Amino acid sequence: MEREKQQMAVEIVRERWKGKVCEMVLGREPRTVRAGGDTSLPFIHFEGDPVRPVTALEVQDIDPGDWPAVLRQEFDEVLSDPAAWARRCVELGADLVLLRLAGTHPENRDTGPEEAAATARRVAEAVDVPLIVLGSGVEEKDARVLPVVAEALEGRNCLLGQATAENYKTVAAACVAYGHSVVATSPLDINLAKQLNILITEMNLPPERIAMDPSIGPLGYGLEYAYSIIERKRLGALSGDRMLAPPVICLVGEETWKTREAQVEDQPEWGDQSRRAVLWETVTAVTLALAGGSIFVFRHPGSLARFNREVDALMRPWEYPSPPPG
């Protein structure tokens, strides 16, 4: 009875937001994936209907020789075959597959646009989930490669990137021409991200076909600042700013596996490397999901599985003042 009186005495203050996060639709029926569309802050069930973040596992067009052994062993038998690697990612429960065209980097194999496009087409045909395709990160080379890839994947409604302030015209134009969405990559600065979105929308690519990549920092390497920027983007979207409304993509695997904590093997006082690295990737992803991220790209399947378990708990509704489940 006393608890019921306390609950009755509590007045729940609910925000009434006028805006929402844009909903991005990727892929083709019957295997489309929707990202974004949130009408409240993340996982706040009594203010809106939280939208579950979607996940991807990363595939590369060449064997990633710089990956540590604890990561390579998860895909050891398929690392030289991107199509087989992609199928393995789907078996592991990824909503999306991200293909990174690392071989196109001028200091790597310097693969040409046609070969890259052929690889992308082969991977797309190997799986029935939507595809994210990223270039090598060299802006000039990506501007030559991505339009050819976009044409090869016409009709598949993919997410292509990365479009930056230096090459967005070419990359965005290809997405408009061949029916894809674009990853807009900017430094970890909300004003630069918004400006890039404005420039891309001026090319007739609407906000719901833009995924913002804020160049996140992982746990121990700028995570707090990344959290604050993504949270500010979510608040801007809910307040009605359409140029901050596109969903946020977080390349968690890429950033996490650069850290010493994930890379270093012989450090007994840090604990087992395989467990430590997976937790580093998982904690980074869960934290940024709480900030407002919508699409999360992992490298280790164990991190994806742990992330999904945490999100399962966060997606279970609860009412204040009762504690959340779990």
Rank of each mutant, 00 (worst) to 15 (best):
residue 226 A to F: 01
residue 129 V to C: 06
residue 160 L to C: 02
residue 13 V to H: 09
residue 64 P to E: 03
residue 309 R to M: 14
residue 237 A to L: 11
residue 268 P to T: 10
residue 243 M to V: 10
residue 41 L to Q: 02
residue 228 S to V: 07
residue 26 L to Q: 04
residue 22 C to D: 02
residue 43 F to C: 08
residue 116 A to S: 07
residue 1 M to G: 11
residue 161 G to F: 02
residue 63 D to Q: 08
residue 276 R to K: 08
residue 173 A to V: 13
residue 216 I to V: 09
residue 24 M to I: 08
residue 83 A to E: 03
residue 271 G to F: 12
residue 105 H to N: 08
residue 273 Q to H: 11
residue 162 Q to T: 15
residue 88 R to I: 10
residue 72 R to H: 09
residue 297 V to N: 00
residue 310 E to H: 13
residue 176 V to G: 00
residue 143 A to E: 02
residue 236 G to H: 07
residue 59 V to P: 00
residue 254 E to G: 09
residue 264 V to K: 09
residue 271 G to T: 07
residue 129 V to G: 06
residue 55 T to Q: 04
residue 299 R to I: 12
residue 40 S to L: 07
residue 12 I to P: 01
residue 274 S to E: 04
residue 297 V to G: 00
residue 127 V to E: 00
residue 178 Y to G: 02
residue 191 N to E: 09
residue 54 V to Q: 01
residue 172 A to V: 13
residue 249 I to Y: 00
residue 81 D to E: 10
residue 98 L to Q: 05
residue 78 V to R: 02
residue 42 P to E: 04
residue 280 W to I: 08
residue 159 L to P: 00
residue 207 P to K: 10
residue 232 R to I: 13
residue 70 V to F: 08
residue 162 Q to P: 13
residue 67 W to K: 07
residue 224 E to S: 09
residue 114 E to L: 13
residue 49 D to S: 15
residue 277 A to T: 02
residue 239 S to T: 11
residue 66 D to K: 09
residue 248 V to Q: 01
residue 36 G to L: 13
residue 31 R to Q: 11
residue 295 I to T: 02
residue 209 R to F: 05
residue 248 V to K: 00
residue 309 R to E: 15
residue 16 R to F: 14
residue 109 R to H: 07
residue 224 E to M: 14
residue 2 E to N: 14
